[in-house]
Amino acid sequence: MPRPSNTEERRQQIVLGLLRVMSERGYERASVNEIAKAAGLSPGLVHYHFSDKQEILLVLVEQLAARARERVARRVARIAPEDARGKVEAFLDAFLATGADADPSAVAGWVTISAEAIRQPEVRDAYEQVVRADLEHLEGLVASVVGKRRARALSVGLFAAVQGYFVLSASAPGLVPSGSAAHTVKQMAAGLLDTATAKEGA
């Protein structure tokens, strides 16, 4: 396997530098100097590899989305093909469960990105693409349980709960009991799926 180029390594250092600063102080306070310091590089190298701070942020959106999708794919792949409910739970676990592969700085970074999506059209476009793809994935899993007609509304509600937990855990971490997010949202999902399935059968 070829070794990443020096340029790729430097760009990755810079993106992770932005994530570190942003998860602690927000995007507004993530100056190029602060990003460079967190990356262990000079500000000149940051300017050399990226045209501006927003370009770094857009790369970070792509990388966080890819990491989350890998986590989802790993967890869903462990579930038997015929266990449609198990796949919904695995999806929710991938986003909310704590454990060795949990990444609080990524959650904090994602919350900051969602706030920037309100202010910056380019970030909004990137954010919406990620959310749309993740929501479509969840909708497909939910549809396997309750059918297509009810899947969209249920999926949006569950995904909103996931995003709400992200905001709470990043903004007021003391409010969320450790390990409760995945358990609670999976209970919500079970109740919603049971109700929808009962209505389909009625």
Rank of each mutant, 00 (worst) to 15 (best):
K87T: 01
R75F: 01
A151L: 00
S169D: 06
E82I: 13
Y127T: 12
A73H: 13
R71Q: 01
A108V: 00
D125R: 15
G86I: 00
A68S: 13
R78S: 06
R74H: 07
E89C: 10
G109L: 00
K148C: 07
S171H: 11
S144T: 12
V123K: 11
R132P: 05
V176D: 06
G157P: 01
Q129I: 05
V76P: 03
V107M: 03
Y127V: 11
G174S: 09
F159K: 06
Y127F: 15
A66K: 09
Q163W: 09
L96H: 05
S105N: 13
A133P: 04
S169Q: 08
G147S: 05
S178Y: 02
L96F: 05
E89W: 08
D101F: 10
Y165K: 10
A97E: 09
A90H: 06
P81V: 14
A115Y: 14
G147F: 01
P173V: 03
G109T: 01
H137L: 15
V123H: 11
R74E: 11
A73V: 06
A106P: 01
A115P: 04
A94S: 00
A68E: 12
S169Y: 03
F166W: 04
L158H: 07
A94G: 00
S155A: 09
A133H: 09
V111D: 11
G99A: 04
V107E: 03
L158M: 09
R119G: 06
G164P: 00
A153S: 13
A80F: 02
Q163D: 12
V111M: 10
V130E: 12
S178Q: 08
E116H: 07
P173Y: 03
T98P: 00
A66D: 12
P104E: 03
V167F: 12
L175F: 08
A151C: 00
A77H: 13
V88S: 05
A143Y: 01
I118A: 07
A65L: 10
A172C: 08
V123F: 10
H137T: 15
A80G: 06
R124F: 09
F166G: 04
G86S: 03
R124T: 08
L92P: 09
A90F: 05
F95T: 00
R152K: 10
A66C: 05
R69I: 05
P81R: 15
E70K: 14
A100D: 14
G86P: 01
S105H: 12
L154Y: 06
V123Q: 11
A100T: 11
P81H: 13
E139S: 06
A115G: 14
P173M: 03
A143E: 02
V145D: 06
R75E: 01
A143W: 01
P104M: 03
P81M: 13
G140R: 02
L158Q: 07
A97S: 12
R75Y: 01
Q163G: 13
V162P: 10
L175V: 11
V167A: 15
L175N: 07
E122F: 07
V131G: 07
V72I: 07
A94D: 00
A151G: 00
F166V: 03
V111N: 11
I118F: 06
